[in-house]
Nucleic acid binder design. Structure first.
Length: 426
DNA sequence: AAGCCTTTGAAGTAA
DNA sequence: TTACTTCAAAGGCTT
C-alpha cells in the first residue's frame, strides 16, 4: 500500500494511490445516470463474473465473485484500459483536467481545512454535495449562486464557494455520511426518499437540496434559522454529530483549544460549551451520538487496554467501568470508505444485491474506475476527516481500537493467501 | 448472537 | 524500511 508522505496529517494519498483507472467506471458513473442503471450494473456484474472465472455459485450467481486471484488479471486489463481511457478522458475533459502529469493531490499544498475543492478551484459535484451534507448550512449553490471559479477564494470557509456547475452531474445519491442508517436503509431508498427527490428520469434519488435534508439534520427550526455555522456538519454528520467529545476520554480535555486558528474560530462558538461540559455518552445537544463514537456497549475486550493513560493514572475504577465510560472512537474514514458510504446506496438501489461483500466488490471496482480528480476529492475529504479527527481527539490513536473486534483469524485457510487483506496489500 | 465476507486506505506493529 | 495486521462501513450470510 503506497504510504502517504506521512507528514503530520496533511498528507493525502500518494500519487500512486490511484494507479488503475479505467474509463468503464467513470462512464458508468457519468453515463449510467443517463442511460440505464441496470446496464451499469450488468456491466459491473458481468465484468465481475468474468473475473471470477464464472465460479460464482448458484447462491451468489448474481453476486460478485470473491476470488482475489483475479486481481492481477484485472489490473493488467484495467491498466491497459486506463491508458486509453486516460487519453480519451483528456480529450473529453478539455480544460477541466489539464494537468499533464498528475500533480499528486492538488490539495497537498492546501492545508486549509476548509477547502475541499479541486485544484482548479472548482468544487466537484460530490464534494459539493459533501459540503451540503457536512456543511448543511453552508451556502453551497446547487444551481444558483454560481461563482466564478477564478475569482479569489477567501482562505477561510466562505459561502463564496467557487463551483463549477454540473447541472446534471450530481451524484444521485450522495448521502455521504449524511444519512445515518438509523434514518436510511440503503436497500430501500424510496422508503425514506420522497418521490420528489427521486430523479424523475432514472428513478434514482437525486441529491436533495439542503432544505430537503432537514429531516436528517435534526436541528430545531430555530437553530436552522439562527445558526449558520459552517461546521454544522461537524456535529451533525449523517444526522449525527460529526465529532463530539468523549466524556473525559482524552488527555486534552478541550480539543477545540488544540485546533488551529481557523478551526477554532469556526468551531468555538458552537462547540466550546459542549467541550467544557460534554454531554453524557457523547451526545450532542441534539441527543445524537457522533458516528465516530460508539456506545460504550460496543464490544470491547475485557482487558480495557483502550483506556487512556490519563484514565489509567487517575481513576481506580475497575476496567470494566472504565470501558463503560469510555466511548469507542472510531477511526476516521479513509477515502474509499467515504466513497463507499456515498455510493453504496446507489449501487444497492441499482441492483438486487444485498450482500455488502458483493456490493463492496463493485464499489471497489468503481473506485478504481474513478478519475483522478474524483478520487482526489475523496482523498481530500478523508484527509480533512483525519485532520479533524486528530484535532478533536488529540490523544486518540488507531491503536486504541486494536483488539476491539474479536476477529478470529481465518487461519483455516492455509497457505494460499496470507489472509485476505494482506493479499491485496500493495 | 457473534463473526465472516469484501473492498481500500490509514495507521500501527514487528522484524 | 519493509511487510504485515487491524480497523473503519455495511448487511446478508454462516456458524
Amino acid at each position: 500500500m503506497p504510504q502517504l508522505n506521512g507528514g503530520g496529517g496533511d498528507d493525502l494519498g500518494a500519487n500512486d494511490e490511484m494507479i488503475s483507472f479505467k474509463d468503464e467506471g467513470e462512464q458508468e458513473e457519468k453515463i449510467s445516470e443517463n442511460v440505464s442503471a441496470e446496464r451499469d450494473l450488468d456491466d459491473v456484474k458481468s465484468s465481475l463474473v468474468n473475473e471470477s472465472e464464472n465460479n460464482s455459485s448458484s447462491s451468489d450467481s448474481e453476486q460478485a465473485e470473491r476470488r482475489p486471484q483475479t486481481r492481477a488479471d484485472s489490473d493488467s486489463y484495467e491498466k491497459t484500459r486506463d491508458y486509453f481511457s486516460e487519453a480519451l478522458r483528456r480529450q473529453q475533459d478539455g480544460g477541466f483536467f489539464k494537468s499533464p502529469h498528475y500533480p499528486g493531490y492538488p490539495f497537498l499544498m492546501i492545508p486549509d481545512l476548509t477547502n475541499p475543492y479541486l485544484s482548479n478551484g472548482s468544487l466537484s459535484p460530490t464534494a459539493r454535495t459533501y459540503l451540503q451534507m457536512k456543511w448543511p448550512l453552508l451556502d453551497v449553490p446547487g444551481s444558483a449562486g454560481l461563482k466564478d471559479s477564478r475569482s479569489p477564494t477567501p482562505g477561510h470557509l466562505s459561502n463564496k464557494v467557487p463551483v463549477v456547475q454540473h447541472a446534471h452531474h450530481v451524484h444521485p445519491l450522495t448521502p455521504l455520511i449524511t444519512y445515518s442508517n438509523e434514518h436510511f436503509s440503503p436497500g430501500t431508498p424510496p422508503s425514506h426518499l420522497s418521490p420528489e427527490i427521486l430523479d424523475p428520469k432514472t428513478g434514482i434519488p437525486r441529491t436533495p437540496h439542503p432544505s430537503e435534508l432537514s429531516p436528517y439534520y435534526p436541528l430545531s427550526p430555530g437553530a436552522v434559522g439562527s445558526i449558520a455555522h459552517p461546521l454544522g456538519w461537524f456535529m451533525q454528520q449523517q444526522g449525527q454529530p460529526m465529532y463530539s467529545i468523549p466524556p473525559g476520554g482524552f488527555r486534552h480535555p478541550y480539543p477545540a483549544l488544540a485546533m488551529n486558528a481557523s478551526m477554532s474560530s469556526l468551531v468555538s462558538s458552537r462547540f466550546s460549551p459542549h467541550m467544557v461540559t460534554p454531554p453524557p455518552h457523547s451526545l450532542h445537544q441534539t441527543g445524537i451520538p457522533h458516528p465516530a463514537i460508539v456506545s460504550p456497549a460496543i464490544k470491547q475486550e475485557p482487558n480495557g487496554d483502550n483506556i487512556s493513560p490519563s484514565m489509567h493514572a487517575k481513576s481506580p475504577v475497575p476496567p470494566k467501568k472504565e470501558e463503560d465510560k469510555k466511548p469507542h472512537i472510531k477511526k476516521p474514514l479513509n477515502a474509499f470508505m467515504l466513497y463507499m458510504k456515498e455510493m453504496r446506496a446507489k449501487v444497492v438501489a441499482e441492483c438486487t444485491l444485498k450482500e455488502s461483500a458483493a456490493i463492496n466488490q463493485i464499489l471497489g471496482r468503481r473506485w478504481h474506475s474513478l478519475s483522478r480528480e474524483e478520487q482526489a476529492k475523496y482523498y481530500e475529504l478523508a484527509r480533512k476527516e483525519r485532520q479533524l479527527h486528530s484535532q478533536l481527539y488529540p490523544g486518540w490513536s488507531a491503536r486504541d481500537n486494536y483488539g476491539k473486534r474479536k476477529k478470529r483469524k481465518r487461519d483455516n485457510k492455509p497457505d494460499s493467501k496470507p489472509e485476505g487483506k494482506s493479499s491485496r496489500s500493495s
